[in-house]
Each structure stands twice: as structure tokens, then as C-alpha cells.
Design a protein around this nucleic acid. Structure first.
Lengths: 234, 234
DNA sequence: TCTCTTTCGAGAGCAGTGCTCTCGTTTCCA
DNA sequence: TGGAAACGAGAGCACTGCTCTCGAAAGAGA
């Protein structure tokens, strides 16, 4: 599993090259079969090697899938970060809509990968430590945006209800992990925007909503706009 | 697959009994393995029959899973309907919180079943017609509640933004399917509450949020309260 | 440069899967 | 009561993840 810290010998190079090749074939396979149907033997076959040889590089199918998981987290994180970074810092609303639509676009282009990230956990429920950092990238882009809004003193949308003490306590660890000041009210709204985004994409991609009855493009756009208003992003 | 419309012979009775037995064993197996790991052979083994015999009752594993799907939709629908029906009609807020918490409770008690319903689609992406009716039960409870709120003239929470023409057009089919008048603004908010609910449950159950860092009980409660306020449920 | 150890790929094999086909047996219906 | 339909069991096919062994290749230390 572990890559040699400094590739020195020809063997080291061959190893990381083959590791990459395996991951690449796995990704390609993921394009049309879904994480559950991913086959180690098929990958080996496409690479012209014995299936047992793959296990020199990934000790099990689950480890392979885990590697795929961080790769996909990183890729979607890249897409979101790039889209968000392309907008001038003070245009908060546009930064939000850019990242939201970037995530959706990526999801639509990589349905099985999205399922791998945000669908039901596929292996024997193992979320190894390696995955939590890459998984946090997109949420962190979002929270940084929220912190910027706080810093700019962007007024929130119409007030709703006070944040009770218990909820404030529940959110405290998250507020702390951001490392920048965010008002409770703003944080609560942010903590509703994220599952709304994921929930909407999940319902769209997994087809749980009556197919074709809803124009997802315009609905998603409107939904993102509303969230922007709610978060006071102008 | 199809059950005899009127069970008359002993064979008919045996058939529906065995069909039920298979489904029951499948449900039991689903309690601790997840939809993807569901094994026809294992079910046959537990029932003391040859695996080939199962195929007399379900032509394929996917058909079995589909049957499981409608069963789970119905079960969660029952739970939600029961909880919502136990609240006096005019207490709109309580009806909402009751159904939301009922859904979450059911999901927490049936994680794999929830994954089957709202996680990544497990078979070769087939959502047969049989599943759409049961799948609509819970959303329909919710929409009926919204229609009741409209009828009672419950004032919505603080205004946010107007509903653009395109969005109104997109939602038209859904408004129509409800069959009762709902203002655009209210419908839009309802159409945000539902994915928020599903998204929150998905993130909680699939553990995509840093484990243990958030008290899901209190957060979910607060979130549901906020949605209630937003929907004008008092 | 020559050993010695580690790493590698390939092949066979195990236990499991979904699914099909056949072959007697049982059940029902006319 | 005889023919047709449904049934359960078993063998078998093609596939899976994974393990083990074995011979070859590569690197490291002398």
C-alpha cells in the first residue's frame, strides 16, 4: 500500500507507475459500472496481468476502492475549488453559485463516482483516516466562503428563530474547526445549506424523484439562489 | 413474479407463503449485510431449499431486491404516516416534526434499508414502475401537510425572493400532481425541505460528516424546527 | 563482481456468487 | 383418470475476491 517515500530504484518507479495504471483502469471501469460492480479481475485482464499480481499493489478490493475514494474526493474538490477560486473574492454570491454548480456538474459527469462519494458506503463500512482530509476539501471551501461573508459583515437574510443553547453547543466543535469567527445564526444556515445541496443532488442522480417531471437545471439554479439569499451572500 | 389474483388451490397458498418467507429472510439478512451483499444462495440455505428453487419465485436477484424496495418504502411510509396521523390536524408544526422524526427514527433503526431506498441504486439501475407508488407515500404525506397549511392560510416565514417564471413552470407538474392549491412560494420551500431532510439523513447515516463531532440528535431537531418556521407551520 | 534477500508475475486453486438446465416428482384441471 | 403445468433438487457454467506456491528478476551488501 505505502508508496516508497523517495522512488530511487527502477523498481520503485515501476511500482508507482503500475499503481497508477491500476487506479486509472479502475477509474475507467467506474465510468460505466458503479462501485459495487468493480472487478479486480477485469482490471487485471485489461492490464494484461494476472489478477493475483494486482494484490501486490492493493491488498484488497476495498483498499483499491478506498484509493479510488480519495482520488474522487480530490477530483471533485479540484473542480469545486477551481470554480470558486475563479470568482473575485468579494463577490460572495457568485462564489457560492459557482461552487454549487461546479459540484453538480461534476456529479452529473461522474455519476458513479458521486455515488461512491455520497451514496451508500460500499465496502464493509470502512472510512479509513486517509479519506477524511480529501472529503473535507469541498465543505471547507464552503465554510471559508461563509467565514468571508462573516468578515465582510454580510447581513443575513430575514431572521427566523434564535439558535438554542443546545444547538450552539452542538455546533461549537465545527465552529472551532473553522478557526475563524462565524456567528451562530450564520453557521446554522450554512449547516443547512450543505445537506440541502447533497440531498438535492442525491435525489436527482439516484432518480428517486419522478423522472422527467421536474426540470432539475432550473430548479437547482433557483434553489442555489435562494440559499445564497438566505446566507446573505450578495 | 405475479401472485395469483385469487389464491384458491393449496399450491397458490404455498406459493404466496414461500414468497413471503423468502422476502422475510431477505429482510432479515438485510439487517446486517447491506443490499449489495445480499445473497440468494444464503437465503435459500436458511430456508433449507435449493438455491435454484428461489428462482421459481423471483426470476432474478434484482427482482427480489425490487420487491424488498417496495416493502421498505411501504414500511417507512407506514411509520411516517402513523406518526403524522397521530397528531391533531390543525397542529401543523407538530405534524411536520412528527413525520420528520419518524423518518429519521426509522432510518436509524434500518440503516441498510434506508441505504436501499435513498442510497446509490444497487441493481443495473432499474426503478421499475412498481416502486414509484410506494416511494411517493412519504413525500405525499408531506405535500398533503403543506396543502393543509395553505388551506389554513398559515403565513409563511419571512419572505426571501420571488419565484421566477422558469421555476414556476418547472414546479407546475408537481403542483398539479398534488391536486390541491399551493402557492408557488410555499411549494418552493417545501421542495427545499424534502432534499434537506434526505440530505441530512444521508450525511448522518453514511457517516460522511466527521464522526462524533456533531450531535446529530439536537442538530436534526433544530433543523426540523427551522424548516417548520420557514414553512410557516405553527 | 558475486551472493543473498526481497520483490515480483503467473498459475493453480478455494470458496463463494448469480443463474440455467435437466430430471424426476407432485399438484392441479379438465 | 390422464395430460399439463408447476415444483424442488442437483449438477454445472461463468464469474468473483483472495491465497498460496514457485520460479524469475532486481536490488543491496560484501
Amino acid at each position: 500500500m505505502e508508496t516508497p517515500s523517495a522512488p530511487r530504484t527502477a523498481r520503485d518507479f515501476a511500482r508507482i507507475e503500475l499503481t497508477r495504471a491500476i487506479l486509472t483502469r479502475a477509474r475507467a471501469q467506474l465510468a460505466d459500472v458503479g462501485p459495487g460492480e468493480l472487478s479486480v479481475r477485469q482490471i487485471a485482464r485489461e492490464l494484461g496481468m494476472a489478477s493475483s499480481a494486482v494484490y501486490r499493489y492493493f491488498p484488497s478490493r476495498d483498499h483499491l476502492i478506498t484509493a479510488l475514494l480519495v482520488e474522487c474526493y480530490d477530483e471533485s474538490g479540484d473542480a469545486v475549488e477551481a470554480a470558486e477560486a475563479g470568482v473575485p473574492r468579494q463577490q460572495l454570491r457568485k462564489r457560492w453559485t459557482a461552487m454549487a454548480h461546479a459540484l453538480r456538474d461534476w456529479a452529473l459527469d461522474h455519476r458513479h463516482e458521486y455515488a461512491l462519494l455520497y451514496g451508500s458506503p460500499v465496502p464493509g463500512y470502512a472510512a479509513p483516516e486517509d479519506t477524511v482530509m480529501p472529503a473535507m476539501r469541498t465543505p471547507q471551501v464552503f465554510l471559508a466562503l461563509i467565514a468571508d461573508a462573516e468578515k465582510q459583515g454580510a447581513p443575513l437574510g430575514a431572521p427566523t428563530m434564535p439558535v438554542p443553547r443546545k444547538e450552539r453547543a452542538a455546533l461549537a466543535p465545527i465552529a472551532e474547526s473553522v478557526g475563524r469567527p462565524i456567528s451562530d445564526e450564520r453557521l446554522v444556515r450554512a449547516m443547512m445549506a450543505w445537506p440541502l445541496l447533497i440531498g438535492q443532488l442525491t435525489l436527482e442522480l439516484f432518480g428517486h424523484l419522478h423522472k422527467g417531471v421536474l426540470d432539475y437545471d432550473v430548479h437547482f439554479t433557483h434553489l442555489v439562489d435562494r440559499v445564497a439569499g438566505d446566507l446573505g451572500l450578495t
